[in-house]
């Protein structure tokens, strides 16, 4: 995000016009085939039987509860990872401590582990046959096949997004500004609120958007821990699959379209931010 945009750079490139054109065309064609076409298909399929059929889909109790569950999970997961992400990035960027590289590796773990495996980990821990299963059953606490399990699995999968966004930025910014604030009399908390937080706000927002998009869209890990109980533990992605398997294509594509729409809104918000605050985003790396 720190590259200097140079408007004269393009004219310095010496590739002939046809090479440039074909490169652009290849890029566009590939993008259309792999991204735009499927996206368009989702929306056309959803609208195949008209808006009336859509109304029917969203009037369905199970669909409504799936949407609410997804929103609830995102509403819990994103703040959790927000707090953890800021704390972890702060610790990694501003302090030296033993086990630091181990912590960075662990933060990356959810990126490299298959989501299905992530879900299984929680079943193995909290499931009926799991490590804590008997104790949980004795105390009448339900984690697997219930909201806590879905939240845990989603939190695990989306854990890296905010921390990963912040760590390089905070490392680059260093600690001098915080130190300056403290020599001027600001307490540690005051320095964090008035200096650190404003300096990372755009990266933080970006991380939150990405984290939120993934939290709402996560399928694999959630599929393992949810149990697919209709109207109770079905999130939107799971609901899409159920509807599809029941040959309710309009329903499946309608919910899928809503999910895609949420993702598009997220992307739109991100682009808007970059466009509106592009200078501030680029400026954050300037000293």
């Amino acid at each position: 995000m720190s590259e200097v945009r140079n408007p004269t750079a393009a004219s310095a490139l010496s590739e002939p016009r046809w090479v440039r054109l074909s490169l652009i065309l290849i890029g566009l064609a590939y993008l259309s085939l792999v991204v735009l076409l499927p996206l368009a298909a989702i929306f056309t399929e959803a609208l195949r039987k008209g808006v009336g059929a859509l109304h029917e889909v969203f009037a369905d109790e199970a669909t409504y509860s799936a949407i609410m569950l997804t929103l609830t999970v995102a509403a819990i997961t994103v703040p959790l990872n927000l707090v953890f992400g800021v704390a972890a990035a702060w610790a990694i960027a501003k302090f030296e401590f033993p086990g630091k590289s181990l912590l960075i590796t662990f933060i990356d773990l959810p990126f490299s582990v298959s989501p299905v495996v992530s879900g299984l980990i929680f079943v193995l821990l909290f499931g009926a046959q799991g490590l804590f299963g008997p104790w949980l059953a004795a105390n009448d606490i339900k984690i697997i096949f219930a909201l806590p399990g879905i939240v845990l699995a989603t939190t695990f999968v989306t854990l890296p997004f905010i921390a990963r966004e912040l760590i390089p930025l905070m490392q680059e910014q260093g600690t001098a500004e915080e130190e300056a604030a403290m020599t001027l009399g600001a307490s540690g908390l005051r320095a964090f609120l008035t200096v650190t937080l404003p300096n990372i706000r755009w990266a933080l927002l970006y991380g939150v958007l990405l984290c939120n998009a993934r939290a709402m869209g996560e399928f694999g890990a959630v599929a393992v821990v949810s149990g697919h109980i209709r109207g109770q533990t079905n999130t939107m992605p799971l609901h899409v699959e159920i509807l599809y398997n029941e040959y309710n294509f309009v329903g499946a594509f309608a919910v899928a379209a809503l999910l895609a729409l949420l993702a598009l809104v997220t992307l739109g918000a991100k682009s808007l931010l970059e466009w509106r605050y592009g200078d501030a985003l680029a400026g954050k790396s300037r000293h």
Binding site: E177, E179, M182, T183, L184, P198, A280, H287
Partner: peptide, 27 residues
């Protein structure tokens, strides 16, 4: 450090980049 009242000028200035010059000085 907050109580020493030692004015410190950092090597790379460490100005608060999101504040104006006036806000920096007034901080």
């Amino acid at each position: 450090v907050q109580d020493r009242k030692a004015g410190f000028v950092f090597q790379h200035y460490a100005l608060f980049r999101h504040m104006t010059v006036a806000e920096n000085i007034a901080y």
